[in-house]
Design a binder for these strands. Structure first.
Lengths: 127, 127
DNA sequence: ACGCTTTTGACAACCGTTTTCACTTTCGTT
DNA sequence: AACGAAAGTGAAAACGGTTGTCAAAAGCGT
């Protein structure tokens, strides 16, 4: 028999459908528990795996070794982060998207994703 | 007292000086043991950490959760990494450098750095 | 060579993730 | 509506890479 519809999968899918931010498995688990869903962490992991395989989610590794998931979406953006106060600005750059795809294609790479973070000191923190 | 020169640190430094490939801590440990060096895995990890802090090494997270290290080559560049075999190509993009500086300046940020990694599947791994 | 301080390394702890396995749920079929 | 086979769930244990602990060893200014 094929894949079945369960309350837990619906909950994970719905949560990730509502945001375009990257979230870790345990963040998702906490969110759902906090919202009253009765769901196990194991199930969250398995559901996320399935959704990645079904190409409904993108997964990236954070710097501290966790995996973060986000629904695949057109129009992603990058972050400009203040290294003093942590303030974050979302920025977009169509030129970057085009450039990375081009570079990857030039080297024979397919299935391309990228990560870009810009760090600096924001106006308020330059005293 | 300052940092000390030890046989173990010299061995790790020399090994990574000879290659420009990304290697994991346990690969480095194995290499050194195989070459007759008596060195503990813990020491390898600590030495790599020190070298990253001293900006002598770049560290990236592989898809399966390991951290891989490689000596920094001169000149700022980015990485195009195959998420299947780990093969890495260094790419440069003056346009990216200009764009990130511009975006940061537009938002009043100074002291700007950025990180860009491109992930994909290389030609060999597309079977 | 002495002695203070750093470094080492076996081992245990940690943490995110995956596996195990008995129990529950789904859903095509009666 | 009820049955039963197959799929899904979740608590707990296992796993694998990395980090912390601490007593012993090594480096280096004197």
């Amino acid at each position: 028999m094929a894949q079945r519809n369960t309350r837990q999968r619906a909950a994970v899918g719905e949560l990730l459908g509502r945001t375009s931010e990257f979230r870790t498995a345990s963040q998702i688990h906490d969110d759902l528990r906090h919202a009253g869903e009765d769901i196990g962490l194991t199930t969250v992991y398995r559901t996320l795996q399935l959704m990645v395989e079904a190409q409904q989610l993108d997964a990236i590794r954070t710097d501290d070794g966790e995996t973060a998931y986000r629904r695949c979406s057109t129009g992603h953006h990058h972050h400009l982060v203040c290294r003093t106060c942590g303030r974050t600005v979302e920025v977009e750059g169509p030129a970057i998207e085009r450039w990375t795809d081009q570079v990857a294609a030039d080297h024979g790479f397919t299935d391309v994703q990228h990560q870009l973070e810009i760090f600096g000191v924001c106006g308020n923190c330059q005293h």
